[in-house]
Amino acid sequence: MPEVPLDFIEMIVAAFITVMILSYVIGDNVLFRIATYLFIGIASGFAGAIAWENIVKPTLVQPLIDDGLIKLLSPEGALTFLIPWMLALFMLFKLSPRLSRFGGFPVALLVGVGAAVVVGGSITGTLVPQSMAAAGMLSPATALPTAGEPLSIWLEGLISALLTIVATISVLIYFRFSAQRDLTGGTRRSRIAEVFAYLGQIFIAVTFGVMYAGALMATIVVLAQRFQFLHDVVTRIVGGA
């Protein structure tokens, strides 16, 4: 009996799974559900194994195997080994409804670090670079015509830059949810703010339209690749390769 190569089995299983998922086109069905539950189980198990292998084992278990309990007694060991162990144990209290309040301590650390990363990342990764890029569009170096540049090209660039800035500002005005309270208790924004907010809505619609078209094109390519894969599998089976 000839030996079946593992990559061939892998390909056959992948083809079956692909058909099971694509069967959703005819509606929610048993095959689709089996494939998705299988996927959640395997993805969760894989994530757990990765977290253990790359984070938990090297931080909590490997030092214990390599250096033994003596590591705990050193001042360095307390910081790199004892405190992580304690934090992890306290975190496990979250599993018990009776003891879960003790789990608040490591959660507070996680939330504090998470908030700092969000604030720092948003400022250095988005707010400053995007504001600089927006401001740079109207800096003299880019907004003024360069020597030999045709007037029409310069004008086109300038109008595009102005429009980009208007789009950015109007979207930000749309996101501004504060408004003055009037005598009746309702809220009102100034007429200019309302006009810009509506313009912002239109620019958001344009942006989402572009993103939608991009996503649609990308997913159509993936769909074509899946059909190509199924075609290749059938060809290989029929061809006996």
């Binding site: 995007q130 980009t164 109007s170």
Partner: peptide, 13 residues
């Protein structure tokens, strides 16, 4: 132009 400005506004928001 249009989507880049809008996307920048969304990102900043």
């Amino acid at each position: 132009v249009a989507a880049a400005g809008g996307a920048r506004g969304i990102l900043l928001g």
